[in-house]
Design a protein around this nucleic acid. Structure first.
Lengths: 335, 335
DNA sequence: CTGTTAGCGCTTTCAG
DNA sequence: CTGAAAGCGCTAACAG
């Protein structure tokens, strides 16, 4: 594979000059430029990012470590981050943490070893004891995504409390009095906040908080199915369910179908997180939609700005999420 | 950030030795090993993949260039490839071609510039005139995924003809006589093959082939919605529809809903490609499911084997796809 | 069992 | 407007 030296030789100039025409980093006469371009063409030269990174001390790449790459929420996030990154001339390296602290540490380490210039991380519940301490020793710009765990770092995510409360408000308005909540992993800040929103909604609706109506679904599909079965198996089962995130929503529906309960005829269901296809399948889910595009864009901007100026004060940003009214709540009003 | 020299200095050995203990690439006394490990700990040393790649002439990474990262079919593929790659100690660099020849060339070039050791590519329709010729000049091991375009390269994908014919067979068995087909981009091999399967099924069912019943949906959701409207608008509209891939299936349903046609009551629908959640939403889609996991695994093995031995003859592999009977076909039989 | 040394392919002073 | 030369941090002969 042709190197810069090959190009220089063919063009009859120094590698310095080749480098400068490639990077437009100092004026080069038109004649020389042409010769170099011709030589590049002729040799089929292709830049070597590795060597360049080595010489410059930065890779012009960003790392993105999240869980469940296939999760539609994260897919949209990836697309947005990728776009923002490449607009700023950065490549994106993506890794899946599997939401497991050990694995997370491993992939974060891999990203560091690849010398990404900055890192976007959706921290797992165990991050504060593994990945984050590791990162603290690496002097690498980091922004935390989705979940809030360390205010000494830049963090960005959605509003959780009020939107979840809005879900409850709506169900209450629909006449429900027993509302079950399929919650995520208890260690995640999002879970805690959505639970707080659930309680807030209950309170606003003048309803008693009943611990038995909360079932932990572990943020994953299987756990949510399990949790749903527990809720439905209650002596006084809920007449409406709230699912804490999109992966769990699939699990809830799976369980409901297994139990022969139809949505919304037999039971109402609303959820946190939207699906791209939610309008075209039934039950048509009433949900809270996160502003994933903006989340990805702003997160990347946050990171890039810190690369620019590492002395910036840590920032925490909350973006609003919106209520999308469809039919799984079983009401006809547009509350 | 600590370098190997720092570690060597602290441990009181040469960098050579540090390198060798890190890579287990030649015996080192236990005592020395311990000193080195301690020094690594103490300095917080983290390997530098960039420098290592530079010195070794390979990056221990593979590139994956596909379109529609969010597409569930590709998401599963990514997961499988990633797993196989990391099992073989390779990092995966993922890029989205957007199924656009120009953009594809750009991302393929970016991957080459990052010096991936090998490349997995789901070629766009225009690949033979841009990305492939470029790659031909790069002496980089490549395997083509999903779509077949160049038998001088390794290629792997699913069976398309017979499975699509099976979809038709089933609809015929359900009593349908006018079956519409929402086809993908006309330049893709998958589209051609699925069309061939459609015709084959028609023929086996003793039905006339009617060009008007084929509408090109451009492989994307929007185009498929459009195509569906054309089909439904026919003087003699079809009583059953076949969608050529998962992105288009969403578009078909979108259009059908807009037209107030219910599946399967007003019209039957079957599709190529399965969805993870297809069992829990209605219409419950009857589909052909591709063996995405195996596709990803085998594709990666193909690539790794070629890295091992570049002289191998090019191989073309077809994997079977399976019929999954649910309810959108509107029949109760389990044909 | 360990160290010396010569690069890998590029960027970037410093000098003309 | 152009070049020489010194690295960037690591690996891998080669030598002991």
């Amino acid at each position: 594979m042709a190197t810069m030296d090959d190009v220089a030789r063919v063009a009859g100039v120094s590698t310095t000059t080749v480098s400068h025409v490639l990077n437009r980093t100092r004026p080069v006469s038109e004649r020389t430029t042409d010769r170099v371009m011709a030589a590049i063409e002729q040799t089929g030269y292709s830049q070597n990012t590795i060597a360049r990174a080595m010489a410059r001390g930065r890779t012009q790449s960003l790392g993105l470590a999240i869980s469940g790459l296939a999760n539609p929420y994260f897919s949209e996030l990836i697309a947005a981050v990728e776009e923002a990154a490449s607009a700023a001339q950065h490549t994106l390296l993506i890794a899946d943490t599997h939401d497991d602290p050990e694995h997370e540490l491993e992939v974060v380490r891999a990203l560091v070893e690849r010398r990404v210039d900055g890192l976007l991380l959706a921290p797992s519940a165990g991050a504060p004891s593994l990945a984050l301490p590791y990162l603290a020793g690496q002097s690498l710009p980091v922004v935390l995504l989705d979940r809030f765990v360390d205010s000494s770092l830049d963090q960005i995510g959605s509003e959780n409390v009020e939107p979840t409360a809005a879900l409850v408000d709506h169900l209450v308005a629909c006449g429900h009095t027993r509302i079950g909540f399929v919650a995520g992993s208890a260690e995640l800040s999002t879970t805690l906040e959505r639970l707080a929103g659930y309680e807030l909604g209950l309170e606003r609706g003048g309803m008693a908080f009943e611990p038995a109506l909360i079932a932990h679904g572990g943020s994953q599909r299987a756990g949510a199915a399990e949790a749903t079965r527990r809720l439905i198996g209650l002596a006084e089962p809920p007449s409406a369910l709230i699912s804490g995130n999109n992966a769990m929503t699939i699990g809830v529906l799976e369980a409901l179908q297994g139990l022969g309960r139809r949505v919304p005829d037999d039971i109402a269901l609303v959820a946190f997180d939207d699906f791209e296809w939610a309008d075209f399948f039934s039950p048509r889910l009433t949900v809270i939609a996160q502003p994933t595009d903006e989340l990805g864009l702003r997160a990347t901007e946050l990171l890039l700005s810190r690369l620019d100026d590492p002395t910036l004060e840590p920032r925490t940003i909350r973006l609003p999420a919106t209520f999308v009214h469809r039919e799984s709540c079983g009401c006809r009003d547009s509350s």
